[in-house]
Design a protein around this nucleic acid. Structure first.
Lengths: 230, 230
DNA sequence: GCTCCTTAGATAGTGTCACTGTTCAATACT
DNA sequence: AGTATTGAACAGTGACACTATCTAAGGAGC
């Protein structure tokens, strides 16, 4: 297909696709002539992935490029791909580096959990910055208090690692690593919020919520698309 | 203290503080004269919180304003504050709404978990969008496959709800709700990444990774290293 | 061959966001 | 008195992610 067709199928403007091409996020199509190139379904795939990383994970375009390059690099071990992807996702905004105390706290926490990271893992600093903020807000940051989060994190991490098709062709496994790291993270985030709401309603406000089994008024549903959750 | 002192103690430029004042994120100080105002430690507190929401959660300034206004509103029930905060945090970037299929899937998932949300909770849509992406990438999105994430999410949500000082003055509880929803979310995200790394190292490569204490082989590693890339 | 359309590629422009800097008049401090 | 600081209003900046325009070269139908 040519670029306009690719645009139509992906739902993206031609100009945007050209932009991704320029930025190296999307590999060039195979040139048919000097003014035409052929794009494949793989390009469509790739565009979907790009949009997922942009829309869901909100990664900057340059970072998407870094991750994609790592996915495409057949030489790169999966373990390193995971590192690249994590670095892309973990990055916190502000430039303030973690305090020394935060780093110590983070290291102690990891040690207490028996989690061994690579020597220079940037995750320690990201984690330290979060602990700094928590500490600054008066929240407890000792290993014991944080254990529930650590255990939940570990549980999903185990499942995710089980989920990587290590025996499959590298391209497939690489795709899973990148998608998994990024998208399952967002899934967990959204589920946590949903769980918060569910738990808080159970505890503090079940009575303000009829709509259980009674004759649900025929109204509503106008924009919900489907039943809300019952 | 006056504004320059507030700037010094908070580490923020005066111009930035004035900006937050203009945007309504920071309440005005008590005017001493027509050209001077007195700021308190509460302002310092507030600035810390603003920076936490900006740097850690990467919330837009306008959204920070919304959350802060909800925190300050003594009339607003904590349950509603939670809703406001969740909406602020959950917001996904792209404008594409969830597909109908995604919404159905999300509703079924929530139903299967016995999680009841408010009728019009925007969380359903956010969750649906993540499921859409997962589905588009060929990942399984049935309730059974996603159960581990749901259980982990529920576990931390329970702990977080326990953690809210419902008996304390509303201002304190409100602060905890906002900080908790936002910052503990990031904590979980970072811990998940750390756990991924720990688990992957345990399983696939404690030995392929020297750099422990030996004299780091001067050899190549051409470009594969675990550099942050960028 | 001759229009008319599409494309690749290069370059410039737009809109948003979060500051940042500038000016001015009214104090405040020394 | 003289310098510095402040609050208020407003213009300017830099990063980012597109988006638009322009040009020359094909290609398609007549």
């Amino acid at each position: 297909m040519r670029i306009s067709e690719l645009a139509r199928q992906s739902g993206l403007p031609v100009a945007t696709i050209k932009f991704y091409l320029r930025e190296g996020l999307l590999p060039p199509g195979t040139p048919i002539s000097r003014t035409q190139a052929e794009y494949s379904d793989a390009h469509l795939e790739r565009l979907r992935l790009i949009r997922a990383l942009r829309d869901i994970a909100d990664l900057p375009v340059a970072t998407v490029g870094t991750v994609l390059a790592a996915v495409d690099d057949e030489e790169l071990p999966l373990l390193d791909l995971l590192g690249v992807t994590q670095t892309a996702v973990a990055g916190l905004k502000g430039s303030a580096p973690a305090t020394e105390a935060g780093v110590v706290l983070a290291a102690e926490l990891l040690a207490g959990l028996d989690w061994t990271l690579t020597e220079d893992s940037p995750l320690v600093d990201s984690l330290a910055r979060v602990l700094d903020v928590l500490h600054g807000e008066g929240e407890p940051v000792d290993a014991e208090s944080l254990r529930p989060w650590a255990e939940a994190a570990r549980a999903v991490a185990e499942v995710e690692m089980d989920h990587i098709p290590v025996e499959a062709p590298r391209a497939e496994a690489a795709h899973t690593v990148a998608v998994g790291t990024v998208i399952y993270g967002e899934l967990l985030t959204q589920l946590r919020l949903a769980a918060q709401e569910a738990v808080s309603l159970e505890r503090f406000g079940p009575e303000v919520r009829p709509a259980e089994e009674g004759a649900e008024a025929p109204a509503a549903e106008e924009s919900a698309g489907t039943r809300p959750a019952e």
